[in-house]
């Protein structure tokens, strides 16, 4: 596969080991809180396909449900790929078109307009992501299931996701895997080559491409994040190592500016014990 051939050695993972750890993690984190099932947004991309494959292995395919939530501008190819993934994994998938509920909001006369096309696209994209989130959480209650996250480490570090939209979940098995590592694990789990090879896209409009929008390839981005984050190297050192100065600076800035998306909202301290400051309990408290 061309994508795999381009991955440099520092980003290579032991896929068997990663799979064993993630399957254990999903099974335990779902079962210990009293659930058997997960539900997730099945986009037709590789992230949701991988999360689903791991969950199907951990919980059994009968306990994994994908919700495909196209908007009118979503690519038909994504819909077809979502079906391909569901069939391959033997999981149930349901299509819920979100066009009506998204358009109803923007067509409402009290919703402010926007002259700038870029802002407009961003607002529409965020609205779609948040509508999808509400659908997943609502259905998770009906199915007595947990919402499975599909955000990978690269997009979490970039802030390339919608806060309280696609970033919302109960359990995220992919959050410590860079995009290039998602591809490796997906290949090891025998997910469709077509889905691994196609250009990654947020699919907010037809023909959109992450890499075109960000301006750099995931291989370049992942290598820089690997050294900046995992090895705590300075920007100056990365430049000395031969990385593109502009890209190193741009990624460092994105990392800082998106930190808020990776935190709880700021809570003003007033009392003796304040949530997340000096009221500290594990998430698995009581389970």
């Amino acid at each position: 596969m061309t994508r795999l051939a381009a991955i440099p050695s520092e980003l290579m993972i032991d896929a068997g080991l990663a799979k064993a750890m993630l399957v254990t993690m999903i099974r335990e984190e779902v079962h210990k809180v009293g659930f058997k099932r997960v539900i997730f947004g099945l986009s037709g991309g590789i992230d949701s396909a991988l999360a689903a494959a791991l969950a199907a292995e951990a919980l059994g395919p009968e306990n994994v449900k994908g919700i495909v939530m196209p908007y009118k501008s979503s690519s038909p190819e994504s819909l077809a790929d979502a079906g391909l993934v569901a069939e391959k994994l033997g999981i149930e998938s349901v299509v819920v078109d979100i066009t009506q509920q998204v358009d109803a909001y923007f067509e409402n006369s009290t919703t402010p307009g926007s002259g700038d096309q870029k802002i407009w696209n961003l607002r529409r994209g965020n609205k779609m992501a948040r509508e999808r989130m509400t659908i997943l959480y609502d259905r998770s209650m009906v199915d007595n299931s947990l919402v499975l996250g599909t955000s990978n480490k690269t997009e979490l570090l970039l802030g390339y996701g919608t806060l309280y939209g696609d970033m919302a979940s109960a359990v995220n098995p992919l959050g410590d895997l860079y995009k290039t590592q998602v591809w490796q694990l997906a290949a090891a789990l025998d997910l469709p080559e077509k889905v691994i090879e196609k250009p990654p896209t947020a699919d907010l409009w037809s023909g959109q491409s992450d890499e075109a929008e960000i301006g750099y390839s995931y291989v370049e981005i992942d290598r820089i994040f690997y050294y900046l984050v995992d090895h705590r190297m300075t920007q100056a050192r990365l430049v000395r190592m031969g990385f593109n100065t502009d890209l190193v600076e741009a990624l460092s800035k994105l990392l800082r500016r998106s930190q808020y998306k990776r935190c709880l909202p700021v809570v003003a301290k007033l009392g003796r014990r304040t949530i997340d400051r000096d009221f500290r309990y594990p998430r698995d408290w009581g389970y």
């Binding site: 050695s9 290579m12 993972i13 032991d14 068997g16 080991l17 990663a18 750890m21």
Partner: peptide, 13 residues
């Protein structure tokens, strides 16, 4: 806690 899953690990973290 298990950590470190680099390509050379051969199944052992």
């Amino acid at each position: 806690p298990a950590r470190g899953i680099g390509g050379e690990t051969q199944g052992v973290p």
